[in-house]
Each structure stands twice: as structure tokens, then as C-alpha cells.
Design a protein around this nucleic acid. Structure first.
Length: 594
RNA sequence: GGGGUCGUAGCUCAAUUGGUUAGAGCACCGGACUGUCGAUCCGGAGGUUGCGGGUUCGAGCCCCGUCGACCUCGCCA
């Protein structure tokens, strides 16, 4: 007989009745009847009920055993009587009558219960992650993550992609997120950086002629956390392809994402390919976001012209000064109490905006101050343009275009949630395309790269030389699912002259490009194929499939919001000897700069 | 760095809005019980109400400060 087990805890069935077996696992639950005692024995695979009778030599031992102790049970498989069958358990038709039990590892009193599905503070969960990971939901999430990654790999390989590993210790790069730096022992005063993404490496792989690359790539960014952004590190399905147009990239990845979502969708509907393509400009107008949640049926309209020179003075005046008006319909909300409208207005103010105007229609009659001052003719124009129903509500965001779009987008989400309009049980995908190449930085008062400096501008050199930089679009695209940005990608700029020109527009001298992007710009001078790719976030894909609102629920050992690992105690101080070797002296400033 | 929510037993929560000795469930310890599957029943132990100060006859509750957690803005090409 095997030293530890002949079967796992989810293996025994009626066909095993009568056999002598050996099981090992954790004591999940105990039901003590004094002269008869039940133990639910748990391992990775499931549960088996163990029965211990008073006559058994194991009885005394098991009566004092603590939950989550690890035991080995020798016994016989018995069929349960009809009224004792537990139909919730795959092994519920049998039980194991224990003859001998060995306590292999005793558990102390638990800081965190493993049984049950109550919620517990993250600090305790993270500090005792090994216990938290024993719990059913988290355990299942992590297994799901592994299966999703295996599926992604298989699907990419089936599509003709080849997996490569790129360096973890690399060079710091300008722009983008803050780098994690690693000091060099051999070169005092110099640092490696952990890659924010294998961006340049994958492009170099294209130059090297590998044609189709992918990698489940670890990425490191020293930025603050969010519910959907893990601090420090995360994983991307990073891929790149040679001799492709934007459409080729879409056609390659859509079946992979659609396939993996279909495989693990849990009964939900998945957008079939081709996914809708929405221009960035249209997305900002209609959804007030570059990552629209298409489960929300509300569509925003621009109604600036209805208000221009009209009787609603606040808006009319703002429009003269360059503001626009965006209208957010609230279907069927017209009959709601005034508190709904005033509450939404107050919410907008609390978010730091000027507020939201509104009209509430009741039986086709527009109510509220906006309708009164605007006059029946213009209200009728609104109804016709927006195709409003007789009992709809409508909110108005009036501000400079960028701000109005953002507020309208937030209001769209809020109204959709309040009115319970968000479609359930569905994964709605779309591409956001035609991102602007550059944007205006109000703070620095200069033109900056809008997304990725390596993207090819639409119109290439001609566009850079002849168009207003702020009007130039890039072959840059994001893939969005249910309002979550899964990835961003681009057709890359593989021509050094266009690269120099693009960086020049963003205020970087040729020498800066040569220095900061030396490896890549140099490579492009020796025959570079046109190429492009993208990098869907693996953690976010799993998060969607596991239906978890927080990314830490799909990561084995996540750090907390302050980027600390409470279990391992990272980051930690290091010895003076280590610092000396690195040529580093700590100056005693313990507060981070901001 | 700004804003929000929270902080009471090992864990989840309560405490009639400022009033007697801060309660309950789970877990833990002891006892009863041979068919439970969130076992049940009886009993026990467990608390500087995050920390510091203030107001008050009296503070878990009000005020000030501070620490921590999460959410969020900034940030994330």
C-alpha cells in the first residue's frame, strides 16, 4: 500500500465498496456524536466522509483533532444507506470507515476559517494566504487561471505562434510607467530595470525573422494599485506578428479570445467574431470612455446645437466659451421621484464636476428648470433628435469637450446601474481603433505621445510632415470587454526616419531616440518587416471569467495596495554588506516622494 | 499627495443613537449524545472598543490628532 494514499478525496464511488483504502488530507469539518464521529476529509480534488466508531482505535485520536490538521486514514469503503446519501457530494454515496488514523501534521487554532464562504479582511487573508488558498472559491479561481493560461497557450500555438522568453533584467526606458530598478553590482551607479512589457524585445524578434511570437509575459510597473490593477507585477498574453495589417492582427487574436471565453464562460453569452470596431472619437462621444461597457444600452448624444443661443442661460453662455453639451438618456426614469435626478446631480458635484442638468418627461411633458427655460420648441427638438420616450429622463453634461465626455461617461455608467439596465450573463467585446497619435498635455503645455510611441501614424511620414499633430491618428487599438481594457496594441513604426520624426514632434531630439531605444532603432536599420501585435491582460481575462471584481482574487500571492507582501515581508531592508557590494548608501529618507 | 468608507473577542457582526457588568454566531476548551453532512444540546474561557488626547457626572458612540485597511482621483506610453 502506498505510504500516503491509494485514492484522492474525490475518487471513491459505489464501485469501490468493500475495498481497503488509504486517504490523506485536511480535516475540513468534524461532526462529533460522542460515540460516532464524522470527518470531512479534504484535498485538492474534493471531500470524502470518514466515519469513526467508538470501537475504532482511532477514536481517541480523532476526537481531539483540530480543524485543518493533516491526517492519514486507513479504512474500508462502505455504501451509505439510502437516507444517508449526500447528493451534494460526488463521493456522497459512500463513506470510509476508519480503522487506523495517523495525525501527520497538527494545526494550531486558525486565524482564518477555511470552511464556509464568509468574507474576511484582506490583511488577514494576505498574511495567511496559504490558508486563504485552501478555501473553495479562491482555490477554484487559481485552478481556473491555470486552465485559462493552458488554453491560451494551446490556441496561440495552434494559430502558428511560437513562444519565447525575453529578459527580466533589462534597461530602463523613458516615458510610460515608473520602472522597478535593480542595482548593478558590477557597475556601480548603473541599474537594470524590470520590463514594463517585453515591447522592444518582441519587436526585435520580428526583425530577427521569427514571424509570430507570443509569451505569457510577466510585466512590472511601479504604479499605484486599483481593483483591476495589481501593484507591481501582472501577466500579459504578449504577441507580435510580421507582415500584417491591423485587420490581420484582429483576425488572429479574436478566435483565441472568443475561444477561451467560450471555453470558460460559465453559461454566459460571448460576442462572436468579428468584434465590433469603434473609432476612439465615436467611443468618447457615444460612451464617454475609451473602454465602453457595451452591456449598458445607453448611448450619449451631442446636443450642443439645441442649447446654443437658447433660453437656458448657463449652458448657452458656456457654449459660447467653447463648451459642449452631452445628453445621457435615462430610459423610463421620467416618472421617478425628483430625488433621483437631484441625487444624480449631487453625485456629479461630489465627483468634482459642475453638475448635471436634467429634464424628466412625464406623459411627454418635460419637467424641471432646464425644460422650462429652454422652451417647448427646443425641448421638442431634443425629443426628436434623441428619440426620447414619453416617460424618459435625460441628463446633460456641459463642459469643455474632454470633461463633458468623461462626465457623460460616468453618468452613463451610473444611470445604467441605477436603472438596472446593464445586461447580465454576457461578455461584450469591442475594438477601439483610430486612437490619436499625440495629445496636448495641459500641465506641461506640450505635445506628448497619446499611447505608444512605437505606433505607426496613419499616413506615415506624410501625415507627420503635413498634418496638425493633434489630428494624426495611429494604427493603435485596444480590446475591451464589459468595460475593462483587456489589451492595447498597435501596428508598429518600423521605419527609423518616421520614428525620429514622431519623437521630434513630442519634443525628443534624434540623439535621445538613439540613446534610449538604441537596440531597436539600430535593428530597424538592417531590414525590418512591418509588424504589429497586442497584449491582452491575463489577470483581467481570468478576473472576468471568474466573475471577480478584484484582481487579487485571481492571483496566488498578491501584494496589498501599498505594494507590500505581508506574508513574505517584502519589500524588506537589506544588510549593509549587500548595499556596500552594490555601491549604494541609504540616505535615511523613509517617505516616498510624490 | 487629495477624497470616500471602515476599524468592537482569533474571525463575522451587534450594542435601542451619550447611560448599569460591551452582546450573539463561528472557532477554541470542558461535558452529553451511534447517522451527521453548516450536526445538536449544556457549560466555560476569551475585550485597554486601532492608538493618543479632549468634551462630559458619564464616551464603543461626540470633537481633535494619529495609525492601518479597502475603494477612488492623480498615476498607469
Amino acid at each position: 500500500m502506498h505510504k500516503y494514499r491509494t485514492h484522492n478525496c474525490n475518487q471513491l464511488r459505489l464501485s469501490d465498496v468493500g475495498h481497503a483504502v488509504r486517504l490523506s488530507g485536511w480535516v475540513f469539518r468534524v461532526r462529533d456524536h460522542g460515540n460516532l464521529l464524522f470527518v470531512d476529509l479534504r484535498d485538492h480534488y474534493g471531500l470524502t466522509q470518514v466515519v469513526i466508531d467508538k470501537d475504532s482505535s482511532a477514536f481517541a485520536l480523532i476526537q481531539g483533532v483540530k480543524l485543518e490538521s493533516v491526517i492519514r486514514v486507513d479504512g474500508k469503503v462502505l455504501a451509505r444507506k439510502a437516507d444517508q446519501i449526500n447528493s451534494n457530494l460526488p463521493s456522497g454515496e459512500i463513506e470510509v470507515r476508519a480503522e487506523e488514523i495517523e495525525l501527520m501534521s497538527e494545526a494550531a487554532e486558525l486565524p482564518l476559517p477555511v470552511a464556509g464562504n464568509a468574507e474576511y479582511p484582506e490583511e488577514i487573508r494576505l498574511r495567511n494566504r496559504f490558508l486563504d488558498l485552501r478555501r473553495e472559491k479562491l482555490h477554484a479561481n487559481i485552478v481556473l487561471r491555470s486552465q485559462v493560461i493552458a488554453s491560451l497557450r494551446r490556441r496561440m500555438i495552434d494559430q502558428g505562434f511560437t513562444e519565447f522568453q525575453t529578459p527580466i533584467l533589462t534597461a530602463s526606458s523613458p516615458e510610460g510607467a515608473r520602472d522597478f530598478l535593480v542595482p548593478s553590482r558590477l557597475h556601480h551607479g548603473k541599474f537594470y530595470a524590470l520590463p514594463q512589457a517585453p515591447q522592444m524585445f518582441k519587436q526585435l524578434l520580428m526583425v530577427a525573422g521569427f514571424d509570430r511570437y507570443f509569451q505569457i509575459a510577466p510585466c512590472f510597473r511601479d504604479e499605484d494599485a486599483r481593483a483591476d490593477r495589481s501593484p507591481g507585477e501582472f501577466y500579459q498574453l504578449d504577441f507580435e506578428m510580421s507582415f500584417v495589417t491591423q485587420e490581420d492582427v484582429f483576425n488572429a487574436i479574436e478566435p483565441v479570445l472568443h475561444g477561451v471565453f467560450e471555453e470558460f464562460r460559465g453559461g454566459k453569452h460571448v460576442t462572436p467574431p468579428p468584434f465590433p470596431r469603434i473609432a476612439f472619437k465615436d467611443s468618447m462621444l457615444k460612451y464617454g470612455s475609451d473602454k465602453p461597457d457595451l452591456r449598458n444600452p445607453i448611448v450619449i448624444s451631442d446636443v450642443t446645437e439645441v442649447f446654443r443661443g437658447g433660453g437656458f442661460g448657463v449652458f448657452a453662455k458656456a457654449i459660447e466659451e467653447g463648451s459642449v453639451v452631452r445628453a445621457i438618456p435615462a430610459p423610463g426614469a421620467g416618472v421617478r421621484a425628483r430625488s433621483f435626478f437631484d441625487g444624480t446631480n449631487q453625485w456629479a458635484k461630489d465627483e468634482g464636476y459642475a453638475g448635471l442638468g436634467y429634464i424628466n418627461f412625464k406623459g411627454g411633458e418635460g419637467g424641471g428648470g432646464v425644460a422650462k427655460n429652454l422652451g417647448p420648441e427646443r425641448v421638442a427638438q431634443l425629443v426628436s433628435q434623441m428619440q426620447l420616450g414619453p416617460d424618459d429622463g435625460v441628463f446633460f453634461a456641459c463642459a469643455k469637450p474632454n470633461v463633458a465626455a468623461k462626465l457623460a461617461g460616468l453618468a452613463r455608467t451610473r444611470v445604467g446601474q441605477e436603472l438596472d439596465l446593464i445586461e447580465k450573463n454576457t461578455f461584450k467585446f469591442c475594438w477601439i481603433v483610430d486612437f490619436p497619435m499625440f495629445e496636448w498635455d495641459e500641465l506641461e503645455q506640450k505635445v506628448i505621445f497619446s499611447h505608444n510611441p512605437f505606433s505607426m501614424p496613419q499616413g506615415e511620414m506624410n501625415a507627420l510632415e503635413t498634418q496638425n499633430p493633434l489630428d494624426i491618428l495611429a494604427f493603435q487599438y485596444d480590446i475591451v470587454c464589459n468595460g475593462i481594457e483587456l489589451s492595447s496594441g498597435a501596428i508598429r513604426n518600423h521605419k527609423p526616419e518616421i520614428m525620429y520624426k514622431a519623437f521630434e514632434i513630442a519634443g525628443y531630439d534624434r540623439s535621445v531616440v538613439d540613446e534610449q531605444f538604441r537596440g531597436m532603432i539600430n535593428a530597424f536599420k538592417y531590414g525590418a518587416p512591418p509588424h504589429g501585435g497586442s497584449a491582452p491582460g491575463v489577470d483581467r481575462i481570468v478576473m472576468l471569467l471568474a466573475d471577480e471584481p478584484n484582481i487579487r482574487e485571481v492571483i496566488l500571492f498578491p501584494m496589498n495596495q501599498k505594494a507590500e507582501d505581508l506574508m513574505m515581508g517584502a519589500p524588506s531592508e537589506v544588510s549593509p554588506k549587500q548595499l556596500r557590494e552594490l555601491g549604494i548608501r541609504f540616505i535615511g529618507d523613509t517617505k516616498p516622494q510624490s
